[in-house]
Structures are given as structure tokens and as C-alpha cells.
């Protein structure tokens, strides 16, 4: 990580224009220092440390001494439970990217319109799930989706959509989709806020200028506004992707990964081995190895998308 700050100390090049540019860059590097310190201390270092721990059979207390080489990794890669959890995490991400992201954009465009009365109220309403305590969300949905007395099943059977109540959270086939739905509900407000902020970065004048130039609102949106959103859209995409991969609280509060691990995701899997209070012997080293494998895999998946994203970014930035 020395690379973050090192260039600032490079000797200044000769020649006035270059020196001037260097001075400007020197400021840029100086601006990077606080973030770099915080980031190295609390992201890079713990990450490296956990890599180190993943080579030990270690319960998280005292100094790790029991070096077991790649055994933890062998165990992780061979654990069916881990790959199931990985797949579930991946499904959470797909849902977030292909359902939540576009829906939130549509609503953000709608709620960004000055002519829509009461848009502040709508925004607040859509945002409220974000601030609803996750543990309470867990019990509320457990009660709402209950196959015996739950209001959802009562409504569905009354309308006649289903013959017998659906065991939403209890069946291994429906539990994961239900949980993904709840996750989208809970996180939707955040994505909406991102989009609203992104829309705000587009000067109104540009939209209006396009209209005056004869474009209809749809054309203006399609050819002027959306392309301008692209750089931030890619950032938002990454954020949503990352958040969806780290879904933990909601799963823990609603199903604890059940039934029969049908909703287990990687963070709950890791938690079970590192911190579960019912564990007689924590396997912190193993949990670290699982974290490393998960991180590397998602990074690879992201890198596969990188060329596409970069092309989009460049196309958007030059529009």
C-alpha cells in the first residue's frame, strides 16, 4: 500500500510546466493521505491479517500457532455447504442487480419530477424500510407470511389464487425467493437515494435545453439524461452488488439460514464458524479462509464484467 503515498515523495521533475503539474498532483496525493491511512488500517490490514490467519487452526484467541498450511482452504473448497451459501449469495446479487436496480431507477425518475405532488412523502415512505430495525423486520415478515395465520396467505386463499396456504419461509423452494423479496424491500430505499442523488448531478438546464431543441421528454431522457448517468450508475451498480453480497442481518433475523440451509449465505456461513455462541470451538482460521475464497471469487466475477463496464463508463463520460 506504500504505492498510495510514495509518488508524492518522488523528486520533482525539471522544467516549469512539469513542476507546476507536480505541485498540483502533490496536493492530490496529500488529499489522499487521510483516506489512505484509514483505509490501510481498517481495510487492508485486517484483510491481510485474515489471509494470514487462514493458514492456522485457530480459535481467535491469543497468537495463532497451529500452522496447517492450506488445509482450511481445502476444507472450504470441499464443503458443499459453502458452495450452496455462495450460490445463494450470488442469487441475492442477481436479484439486486436485475430487479432492484432498474426498479429503483424508474421510481427515482418519477419521484424526481417537480410536478409530482407529495413526492417528499413518497420518498420517505419508500425509505422507511431502510430504517426499520432488521430484527423487527424478521418477525414481522415471519408473521405476515405465516402459513396458518399470516395475512398474505389468508388474502391469497380468499382471492382464490392458491388452494392451500404457501409455506413461504418454511419450504426449501420458496424460502430463498421470499427472503430475496424481503431483502429488496429493505434495501430499495438506499438504491433509490443513490439514484436520486445521481439524477441531481445532471443540471436541469441540459434536460430543458434538449426539450427546447425539439426533443420530446422521452428522447431527452434516453439520449441526454441516461447517458450522463452512466459514470455514477456504474458506481451505484458496484455498491448494490457489494451490499447484496453482504446480506447478513436480514437472513440471521428471518430464517437463520434455514430451512435446512436453503437460505444460508456466505456471511451467515462465516459467522457460524467464527462467532456462533453455540459453537464449542470456534474455527476462526476456517472462517477467514472462507472469507478469502469468497472475496477472490467475487472479485473474479467482477473482473469478468470489468471490460464491459469500462466501455460503458467511457462511452458515458464522453457523451
Amino acid at each position: 500500500m506504500a504505492s498510495l503515498q510514495a509518488p508524492a515523495r518522488r523528486p520533482r521533475a525539471a522544467g516549469r510546466p512539469r513542476a507546476a503539474r507536480w505541485r498540483r498532483h502533490a496536493w492530490s496525493y496529500a488529499f489522499l493521505v487521510p483516506a489512505a491511512l484509514l483505509f490501510c488500517g481498517f481495510s487492508i490490514w485486517p484483510m491481510l491479517a485474515s489471509w494470514w490467519y487462514s493458514f492456522f487452526e485457530w480459535d481467535g484467541v491469543g497468537a495463532p500457532t497451529d500452522w496447517i498450511g492450506l488445509d482450511n482452504f481445502r476444507d472450504v473448497l470441499g464443503a458443499g455447504g459453502f458452495w450452496d451459501a455462495f450460490w445463494h449469495s450470488f442469487l441475492f446479487s442477481l436479484a439486486a442487480l436485475f430487479i432492484e436496480l432498474p426498479l429503483a431507477l424508474i421510481l427515482a425518475i418519477l419521484l424526481n419530477n417537480a410536478w409530482l405532488r407529495g413526492r417528499n412523502v413518497y420518498r420517505l415512505a419508500l425509505f422507511l424500510p431502510v430504517v426499520t430495525t432488521t430484527a423487527v423486520v424478521g418477525i414481522v415478515f415471519a408473521i405476515l407470511f405465516d402459513p396458518i395465520r399470516g395475512v398474505v396467505n389468508t388474502a391469497l386463499t380468499d382471492i382464490g389464487l392458491v388452494d392451500s396456504p404457501i409455506n413461504f419461509l418454511g419450504s426449501t423452494t420458496t424460502a430463498l425467493p421470499t427472503l430475496i423479496g424481503i431483502d429488496i424491500w429493505k434495501g430499495f430505499g438506499i438504491t433509490l437515494i443513490y439514484w436520486l442523488a445521481a439524477l441531481q448531478t445532471i443540471p436541469k438546464d441540459i434536460h430543458e435545453a434538449a426539450l427546447i431543441d425539439g426533443a420530446n421528454p422521452r428522447q431527452s431522457l434516453r439520449f441526454v439524461v441516461l447517458p450522463m448517468l452512466v459514470p455514477l450508475a456504474i458506481v451505484i451498480l458496484l455498491l448494490v452488488f457489494q451490499r447484496s453480497l453482504n446480506t447478513f442481518d436480514l437472513v440471521q433475523a428471518t430464517t437463520q439460514g434455514g430451512p435446512n440451509y436453503a437460505t444460508d449465505v456466505v456471511p451467515t456461513y462465516i459467522y457460524r464458524f467464527a462467532f456462533d455462541p453455540f459453537l464449542q470451538a470456534p474455527r476462526y482460521g476456517f472462517a477467514c479462509a472462507a472469507g478469502v475464497v469468497f472475496g477472490v471469487m467475487t472479485l473474479l466475477i467482477t473482473l469478468l464484467q470489468a471490460p464491459v463496464l469500462r466501455r460503458q463508463y467511457k462511452a458515458g463520460a464522453t457523451t
Binding site: 487492508i44 490490514w45 456471511p267 462465516i270 462467532f275 476462526y284 472469507g291
Partner: peptide, 21 residues
Amino acid sequence: GILIATMFIPHGYTIIPVFLL
């Protein structure tokens, strides 16, 4: 690149090194 790469490292369990720091 480094920033984006670290986005995907799950953070929940890195509490122990952070605690030691």
C-alpha cells in the same frame, strides 16, 4: 483498482485484527 477489489472482501469477521490494532 485496489479500492474496488477490497469492496468484495466480507468484513464481518475481520473484527479481530481491527480490535488488535
